[in-house]
């Protein structure tokens, strides 16, 4: 198929950006979206132009690195699908595709479609862990049974890939889905309960400090999340947060 691409080009964080138009030909339906971008880039390089910069690594939907806003939706038209797992069979010959970076003040653009998501790392550093050293002298792994339902729910929350689509989808650029997924995972497990109150307070404080917006429960995040992280996590985090406000802090 032949396609028209309208791609956001921005040479640096402070530069002004603009949409540029490109044509690509003979795109196979079996290609992934990023392979289609490879074709575009090879074409640009051969013409002596600058290729489009975008983030990617695993190309199988797990590293969370790819991050394109395609036709007005983070990761494009298919539900539960990252950009790298989107295949060109989702488009048809003659289509025009708009490709932009994530837009959020906490995710500044670095170049073209690449953004800086280190704010997510700093939120995790604020408390997204269990304070245990690697002494090798921890309890036997089976010493504390964990009800299967809790373990499964913790796992579901833990499958967040940290891509930031939830933020990009939200009109307030809220990071609640991402943060609540980590808070939920750890608060559901006996090992994580000990620090639950401190954790949620610190992570929420950092989230606010990074400039993420407030949550008004529009549900856009859940709808666009490639891993199907559920809004229930936000409700659970809100409960954890309320509980934490009632427990005297350190």
């Amino acid at each position: 198929m032949n396609l028209t691409l309208k791609v956001w080009r921005q040479s640096g964080p402070d530069a002004e950006g603009r949409m540029e138009t490109y044509q690509v030909k003979d795109i196979s339906g079996d290609m992934s979206f990023l392979e289609m971008m490879d074709v575009l880039n090879a074409q640009l390089i051969e013409k002596g132009e600058e290729p489009v910069v975008f983030d990617h690594d695993c190309r199988e939907g797990i590293c969370g690195m790819c991050s394109m806003y395609i036709n007005g939706r983070p990761h494009g038209p298919k539900q539960h699908t990252t950009t790298c797992q989107l295949h060109m069979r989702s488009f048809k010959d003659g289509d025009t595709i708009h490709i932009e970076p994530w837009r959020a003040s906490a995710f500044p653009v670095i170049k073209d479609l690449m953004v800086d998501r280190s704010s997510f790392d700093r939120v995790i550093q604020a408390g997204g862990y269990i304070s245990v050293n690697t002494s090798g002298n921890t309890l036997d792994a089976n010493a504390i049974p964990v009800p299967k339902d809790d373990a499964d729910a913790a796992f579901d929350a833990a499958t967040c890939i940290g891509c930031g689509a939830c933020v990009a989808a939200c009109k307030n650029a809220s990071a609640m889905l991402f943060v609540s997924a980590k808070v939920s995972q750890l608060s559901l497990l006996p090992q994580g309960k000990v620090e639950a109150a401190e954790r949620v307070k610190n992570m929420v404080a950092q989230m606010d400090k990074e400039g993420f917006g407030n949550c008004t429960v529009t549900g856009a995040c859940e709808a666009e999340c490639p891993k199907g992280i559920s809004l229930e996590n936000i409700a659970r985090m809100n409960r954890e947060y309320l509980k934490a406000q009632l427990t005297p802090g350190k």
């Binding site: 862990y129 090798g136 373990a151 499964d152």
Partner: peptide
Amino acid sequence: EVSTNIIDQCVAQGVPFAREYGGLL
């Protein structure tokens, strides 16, 4: 020898391994 420590360590860190209905790994 150290393989068993790894599992203990990961569980202590909150790694949500698959479990059986009885709650064990």
